[in-house]
């Protein structure tokens, strides 16, 4: 990917990421999150991870966002907009984030491997990304894949149990 596109999508990701934090309206935050994830998917594509870019759009921008928007429909958006920011939390958060960024940049700038250029590391373009991922997933990582399948099943059952109403009126077939 040409360099300008990398900066464009990085800025898109970061600006919409900031939008998630500073928007008062939760719906606007959720839409900023979608835009941020789409920018991230473009960066994955620039790293030749086509499969992960597709998964990112399908799972995050598709499924997860729909879940978030459904839950936001429950809330009173006006109540959120009336709330003020807690200045102590903002100050503490800024100190922590600036400390994190300072430490992070000192670590990354001292990291010798970070100076490799993408253009110096060409990939074998005759091999398909999805084929290679499939091979790895179903040979080295079969067990992990099975465990994730079980985890998804447990999560599905758990969500159904969690969202069942406890105080349901008696079922119709019990009525006289």
């Amino acid at each position: 990917m040409p360099e300008p596109l990398f900066y464009f999508f990085s800025l898109l990701t970061l600006i919409f990421g900031v939008g998630v934090v500073i928007n008062r309206n939760p719906v606007a935050s959720a839409l900023c999150l979608v835009a941020s994830f789409i920018g991230l998917a473009a960066i994955y594509v620039s790293l030749n991870a086509y499969f992960l870019g597709t998964i990112q759009v399908l799972v995050y921008a598709g499924a997860v966002m729909v879940l978030f928007l459904f839950i936001i429909m429950l809330m009173d958006i006006r109540a959120e907009e009336r709330r003020k920011f807690n200045l102590v939390a903002v100050g503490g958060g800024m100190v922590l984030v600036i400390g994190f960024l300072a430490m992070f940049s000192s670590v990354v700038s001292g990291f010798k491997g970070g100076e490799q250029r993408l253009s110096q590391l060409p990939l074998d373009t005759t091999k398909s990304d999805v084929v290679e991922i499939g091979k790895t997933l179903f040979t080295d990582y079969t067990f992990h894949l099975q465990i994730v399948g079980v985890l998804l099943l447990v999560a599905t059952v758990g969500v159904v149990v969690l969202s069942r109403r406890e105080d349901r009126p008696s079922a119709p077939h019990e009525a006289p």
């Binding site: 990701t13 990421g17 900031v18 991230l40 984030v97 970070g114 100076e115 250029r117 993408l118």
Partner: peptide, 18 residues
């Protein structure tokens, strides 16, 4: 594009989330 570019984007995104 160096690896450090991508790591910086990742770190800044993490900081925003934090």
């Amino acid at each position: 594009m160096t690896l450090a570019h991508y790591l910086f984007v990742s770190g800044i995104l993490f900081a925003i989330g934090l």
